[in-house]
């Protein structure tokens, strides 16, 4: 099918526009990719993030996202104070928090905490958010497959055997 020249010109123009914007956008997103990440992982806090391996400084405000380490949750039975450690591939960061935890919070769960670094590996969080994964299944199946039984984290006996 022969295309008339004006139509061909418009086609080139439209494809050029989309292609140009796509290239510009990828360059911008690539340059900003570190800033688009919502949180630091515990390894990034300890080993540094990005090509120049910048580590967060004490006093810096940031978010840390990772898995709550099994058996690390310690809670003060008198107050809302709670501390736990988070990890991703090895290094652990300790999080101190005072407040109500989201319903999905439990050991082994992914969380995102926002707060201030008080020591190189300790953060005092002002907010703790729970992540959930993309798996969905009925409770019976989950218990059978994964041995998970979910309990509300704010129940007084939720971490009974581990209270300090």
């Amino acid at each position: 099918m022969a295309m008339n020249p004006r139509r061909k010109q418009r086609l080139t123009w439209a494809l050029g526009l989309i292609g140009g914007v796509a290239v510009a956008m990828s360059i911008i997103l690539y340059a900003l990719s570190q800033n688009i990440d919502l949180f630091y992982t515990p390894s990034e806090v300890i080993d540094g993030k990005g090509r120049d391996m910048t580590k967060p400084e004490v006093g810096q405000r940031l978010r840390i996202g990772g898995m709550v380490v099994e058996g690390s949750v310690r809670r003060n039975p008198e107050t809302l104070e709670v501390e736990f450690r988070v990890t991703d591939t090895g290094p652990e960061v300790k999080i101190l928090y005072t407040g109500i935890l989201p319903d999905l919070f439990r050991e082994g769960q992914g969380i995102v905490a926002q707060g201030v670094m008080v020591e190189p590996t300790v953060m005092e969080a002002t907010e703790v958010l729970a992540k959930h994964d993309e798996e969905y299944m009925p409770p019976e199946l989950a218990e059978q497959m994964k041995g998970i039984k979910h309990v509300n984290p704010n129940q007084p006996d939720a971490f009974k055997d581990k209270q300090s």
């Binding site: 997103l29 990719s33 990440d37 996202g65 992540k131 993309e134």
Partner: peptide, 9 residues
């Protein structure tokens, strides 16, 4: 591409 609060697809 980025770590986010939203879970994967």
């Amino acid at each position: 591409w980025w770590n986010s609060l939203h879970q994967g697809a």
